[in-house]
Design a protein around this nucleic acid. Structure first.
Lengths: 209, 209
DNA sequence: GCCACCCCTGCCCTTTCGTCCAATGCCCCT
DNA sequence: AGGGGCATTGGACGAAAGGGCAGGGGTGGC
């Protein structure tokens, strides 16, 4: 089973290598497919730093190659998850998922399963599915954030501490703080609590009052 | 991993035995759970001959026991599939699925995946459905909080600082902290960020990993 | 009355968070 | 070559957050 990671930057190549001894990486879908023309393969798309539309187009392109596709997002959300699966992806996870987690996911999708984070399964299935006029309440100005900042913000949005973020991104806590300071300024929030809420489109105390 | 088959008749017991050497069967969910009180277990519900509503109630009962639940239907259909997953099932397949297929499914669900027949995945995901967030069911144990704690929690949920909360409730900052400590314990969260997320029904980092 | 529970608070401590000033290296563009 | 943006880190420091210990008050039930 070929595990092919597609990423523009490849920052996490080492992690992928830990997850799968035979993992290979490429910058584009076509390059990845060329690495394993015949075998059944799993394409892992690193969607960090990409916009929603780009991600989905990417998923569509990857699915069209006849591969199993897993989208890895810096900021997993139910809407993106649903869209990704809708485009034919069979997996959806955090881009920083631990090697052990990645292996679990590979196991699942290789045996015909769908994988997404447990809490998303719950949320997604708890949704009432209706035809609705308005698509989505777009995020404030998430595109003002750099790729790295987005990763940090994404983890704060799930309640992670600086220490956890540092460990997960394999950088010093000091750097996490630097990113956070920059994020706070760009998104005009005061602290990590308001950031966590803003990332989830929840109005905050000061912005309401 | 315990594989427990729940069926009123047990017509397919032999097949299940072929699929899993350790498979056991019972007529009711409670009996099945009693067979494996501790271990993580997978409950396979034989829904053949049951009505839609009965099936779903059954799934709900099984999910409530904390088991992984797979619904086996005599006539798989997308609506039933979605309803089953909606009730918390993690798998949905044909009741006559081959032993090899059953083992695949077990593998998938035991590693956190969802399984349903490939053609159903296609159909389900191909539906142009838009997601509608559910009207936000209140946090499970919110009623465990006292009136005062609820006020504090409510403000944290909107991003307020201890100082702001203290001023707003006209109490000392120390008291706010005391309430918070109590809240953290009752809601099983670590800090105010996770509290803010929990109050808004947003899953948390640590509750996932 | 006693006890349980809630509400409120002080002092003091540790940990975490957030910022300031300063610096290095990388990559891309002009 | 130089400039700008980005990622990274260090040290230091003040500001929050969170908790331990030790109380004050009130209400309500047994």
């Amino acid at each position: 089973m070929e595990q092919l990671f597609v990423s523009p930057h490849g920052r996490l190549r080492q992690r992928w290598g830990e997850a799968f001894a035979k993992a290979r990486a490429a910058a584009r879908v076509s390059d990845a497919v060329a690495l394993a023309p015949d075998e059944p393969r799993t394409l892992w798309l690193d969607g960090s730093g990409l916009g929603r539309a780009e991600c989905l187009a990417w998923v569509r392109e990857a699915v069209a190659t006849g591969s199993r596709v897993v989208l890895m997002s810096a900021v997993p959300g139910e809407e993106e998850a649903f869209d990704a699966l809708n485009q034919g992806a069979v997996g959806y996870c955090h881009v920083e998922a631990a090697p052990r987690q990645l292996r679990e996911i590979a196991l699942v999708v290789e045996h015909g399963g769908l994988w997404m984070p447990p809490e998303l399964v719950q949320r997604l299935m708890g949704l009432s599915l209706r035809v609705v006029p308005t698509p989505a309440p777009a995020h404030p100005q998430l595109d003002a954030l750099t790729a790295r900042e987005l990763m940090v913000a994404g983890q704060v949005a799930r309640g992670a501490s600086n220490q956890e973020i540092a460990a997960s991104l394999d950088i010093s806590e000091r750097t996490v703080k630097a990113h956070l300071s920059s994020i706070f300024e760009k998104l005009a929030v005061r602290d990590r609590v308001q950031l966590a809420l803003a990332m989830n489109n929840i109005p905050t105390y000061t912005s309401v009052n």
